[in-house]
Design a protein around this nucleic acid. Structure first.
Lengths: 205, 205
DNA sequence: ACCTGAACACCGTTCAAGT
DNA sequence: ACCTGAACACCGTTCAAGT
C-alpha cells in the first residue's frame, strides 16, 4: 500500500465506464485492503481525489512544448487540459472547481502566466488574463463532463426544433442551425477569448 | 403535498447554509411526510432537482428588460444568470450542466439569440456565439459555486506567494498580483468574450 | 508502524401493506 | 388514490483492537 498505488487504483475505478463508480469502500476492495487503511495515506476522500486531479493535470502537460507564438501555445495548453478532463469525466466535475495546491498545478500556472508575459502583458494583466483563460477552460471542462452523460443531444434538438414560432420567434429564425447547440461550445469560446486577449496585446504592444 | 410545495421546501433545504444540506429523507422530514411520498410527484431525485433548477432560471429572468444596446443587454443577461446561480450554490453545480427542457429555459434561449440577431449576426453565427456565451456563463456559475465552499483564498494566496523563485519564475515575476486569482474571473472572461463578439459584429456590420 | 473491523450515522429507492 | 414503513443495498468516517 502506498500513495501512488492508491491514486492509480482510484483512477482505474473512476474511469471504468462499466464499473460501479468510485467509493472508498470499493477502493478498499480493489486494493485488497480494508477501506479505512486509506486514511493512513490521505486525510479523507476529498484529499485523495485532489491527488488524483493533480495527477491528471500532470498527464495533460506531459510532452507539452509551448509553440513560439504565445496564442497558439496557450490554445494548445487549454485544449490539452480540456481533453484530459473529458477523458476522466467523473473526476472533471469534482476536480475542475478545486485547486490541488500540488506540484503539477504549480507548473501549469507558471507555464500559462509565462506565456502571457511573453505576449507583452504586465504582471497585473498577465495574471488577470491567465485567470480568465484557465477558468474558462476548467468551467467548460466541468460543464461538458457533467452534461455529457445526462443530456441527450437528440432530445434537445427535437424539442428546440418544434417550439412554436409565435412564442419563440428568435429560435424560429435560426431553426436550421439550432442543432449545433447540442455539441460543445468550448473551442468557439476559447477562440473568442484568445482573440480578445490578442487584441488587447496588440493595443499595448 | 403537491409539486409546488415540494419544490419550495426542497429549495429551502438546499439554500440553508447552516442546515445539514439536502437529502430526500430530510426533505420528507421537512414536509412532515414519509420521504418516499415524494415519488408520487417526481420520478426520482434528479427529476425533482431539475424542477428546482427551472424555477431558478425563471427567477433570474424576472423583471429583465433588455437594454437597447445588445452588448449591454447580453452582459446583464449573463450576470443575472450567474448571480442567481451563486445564490443557490449547492444547486448551481447540479443545474448548470443540465438542460431543463422547460418553459423558462426556452424563453431565456429565445431572448439571448434574439439579442445577437439584433447585433447583426446571421442565424449560424448568432447561434454559435450565443452558445459560447451562455456556456461560458454556466461554466463559471458551476465552477465558482463548487469552488467557493471548498477552496480557501487565504491558503491559496499563502501557497502561491511562497513558491520558490527559481522553480517557478513566471509566478515569481507576478508575485504582487497573484492574490487576485483567489477571486472569480467571471466578469473578466465575460467582458473578453463580449468584446470579441462585438469585434466580429463590427467587421460584419 | 500499520492495518482491521465493528460501529455510527447516514444515503436513494423499491414494494408490499395500510387507510 | 395516496401514503407509510420495512427492507435492501449502499455511503464516509471514527476509534478501539489487533499484529
Amino acid at each position: 500500500l502506498s500513495e501512488e498505488l492508491i491514486v492509480r487504483t482510484a483512477m482505474r475505478l473512476i474511469d471504468d465506464p462499466d464499473g460501479p463508480g468510485f467509493s472508498l469502500r470499493r477502493l478498499g476492495l480493489a486494493l485488497g485492503a480494508d477501506p479505512t487503511a486509506i486514511y493512513r495515506y490521505f486525510e479523507n476522500t476529498d484529499d485523495l481525489l485532489a491527488a488524483v486531479t493533480d495527477q491528471i493535470i500532470g498527464d495533460s502537460q506531459a510532452g507539452y512544448e509551448p509553440h513560439p507564438d504565445w496564442r497558439i501555445a496557450l490554445r494548445e495548453f487549454g485544449i490539452r487540459v480540456y481533453r484530459h478532463a473529458q477523458r476522466h469525466p467523473r473526476l472533471a466535475v469534482f476536480g475542475a472547481a478545486r485547486v490541488s495546491l500540488r506540484a503539477n498545478e504549480f507548473r501549469a500556472v507558471d507555464t500559462g502566466i509565462g506565456l502571457l508575459r511573453r505576449a507583452g502583458f504586465d504582471p497585473e494583466n498577465a495574471v488577470r488574463n491567465y485567470h480568465a483563460f484557465v477558468d474558462l477552460v476548467l468551467g467548460f471542462a466541468a460543464l461538458d463532463a457533467a452534461g455529457a452523460p445526462v443530456n441527450s443531444p437528440a432530445r434537445w434538438t427535437a424539442v428546440y426544433s418544434s417550439l412554436p414560432d409565435d412564442e419563440y420567434p428568435a429560435v424560429a429564425g435560426v431553426r436550421e442551425h439550432i442543432h449545433s447547440m447540442a455539441g460543445s461550445a468550448f473551442e468557439t469560446a476559447l477562440d473568442l477569448l484568445l482573440s480578445a486577449i490578442a487584441a488587447q496585446a496588440a493595443r499595448r504592444g
